[in-house]
Design a protein around this nucleic acid. Structure first.
Length: 347
DNA sequence: TCTGGGGTCCTAGGACCC
DNA sequence: TCTGGGGTCCTAGGACCC
């Protein structure tokens, strides 16, 4: 979906049309959750600090996020899509991979789906089609907003060769910087990088996976019904807190919220992790794995509290978080779909 | 002006088992 | 005195994505 959260908010407030709109929590240390295209013209993007966003565009309209609403709208869209195809892999609230390989006219079906989504929700999507998830994903990003792009492997190869390596999903700022130091800026330069040289820089695994990315090769199957592997809550304080005693009640509260979420989905996990971010942004975690999965508040809170004691808190604390991971499988069968499927699609 | 929250996956080292 | 190889689980940190 194009600028999904902002588009939902603008739909609720028609007078915001054509104005710069930013979805952002109303707290001192917030960052932007989503910005519409008008706001992006001012240099405001997702993750821009709120204060900076206000200075970049004082006339921008700030709206507080409403994730319950976004989840509900996302559900409607996923429901609509499921009338077209059986095989859907949601990839967040505003994005999904679809397997169109069973369809006779996949391009026409995707076209109709895009129109249908707009007619039923008033929201626009960008659709990329390709022989694998990677190409579908890059194609949908390349045609945003409100775009439609279908590419063969060969066409994608030609079209994306000159793009920055950062256009490859999985290549973030750190990897891009390391590549840049090696003189690699574009996807075709990465493709032509000597494998031995690459392995010396990135190690055998990472260099091989970077190479596959640059070749636009991707054999990941579509995975539907993925169940979550962890649930967590974390909070950044308005002002840094000092000492374990100040943090204990927060850790108890977060434990309670995580357990309530787990219980509501009838899920249980074995590994409890506490995370701490200090005033200098250094981040530490401590975890403990139990013999049996749990979602009991007293159990999680007690373990989290004892983990909290093990940190070296010489600096003030900016953030704490509690995570329960190692969630047992709820619905058993992890369906891996036919890897021979030839056509995938992302929006 | 400092820099969220909810996740996934990968790596690497150590413990432990056969 | 010198001491393997493989596999799994756990912990900690880090990169990345939406």
């Amino acid at each position: 979906m194009d600028a999904f959260y902002v588009s939902v908010e603008m739909q609720r407030r028609p007078h915001l049309a054509r104005k710069p709109v930013v979805v952002c929590a109303n707290t001192s240390r917030a960052v932007v959750t989503a910005a519409n295209y008008e706001a992006r013209k001012f240099g405001i993007y997702s993750a821009t600090p709120a204060e900076r966003a206000r200075r970049l565009c004082p006339e921008a309209i700030f709206v507080e996020p409403d994730f319950d609403c976004y989840r509900q709208r996302s559900g409607q869209i996923m429901e609509l899509i499921s009338q077209y195809v059986d095989h859907i892999e949601p990839a967040g609230l505003d994005e999904a991979y679809l397997d169109l390989s069973g369809l006779e006219r996949p391009r026409a079906a995707a076209r109709k789906l895009k129109t249908d989504v707009h007619e039923n929700t008033g929201l626009s999507a960008s659709v990329g089609l390709g022989p694998n998830k990677l190409i579908a994903k890059i194609a949908s990003a390349a045609c945003k907003p409100d775009g439609f792009l279908m590419l063969t492997h060969q066409q994608a190869f030609a079209r994306f060769a000159g793009l920055s390596c950062k256009a490859l999903p999985g290549v973030g700022p750190k990897t891009a910087q390391r590549l840049s130091l090696a003189g690699i800026e574009t996807i075709d330069a990465l493709r032509e990088l000597d494998p031995v040289h690459a392995a010396a820089i990135f190690g055998p695994q990472t260099s091989a996976s970077l190479r596959r990315l640059a070749m636009l090769e991707d054999d990941r199957p579509l995975e539907k019904n993925r169940s979550g592997k962890s649930e967590s809550r974390e909070t950044t304080f308005e002002y840094d807190l000092e000492g374990v005693q100040a943090l204990k009640p927060v850790v108890r509260r977060l434990s309670g919220q995580v357990c309530a979420d787990l219980a509501s989905h009838n899920r249980h996990g074995r590994t409890i992790t506490v995370k701490v971010k200090l005033s200098d942004f250094s981040t530490y975690t401590r975890s403990r794995t139990l013999g049996e999965p749990t979602n009991q508040f007293e159990t999680v809170a007690a373990v989290a509290s004892s983990l909290l004691q093990t940190f070296d808190l010489r600096l003030p604390v900016r953030l704490v978080g509690v995570c329960v991971g190692g969630l047992e499988n709820t619905n058993g069968d992890e369906e891996h779909d036919d890897p021979a499927s030839q056509l995938r699609f992302a929006f």
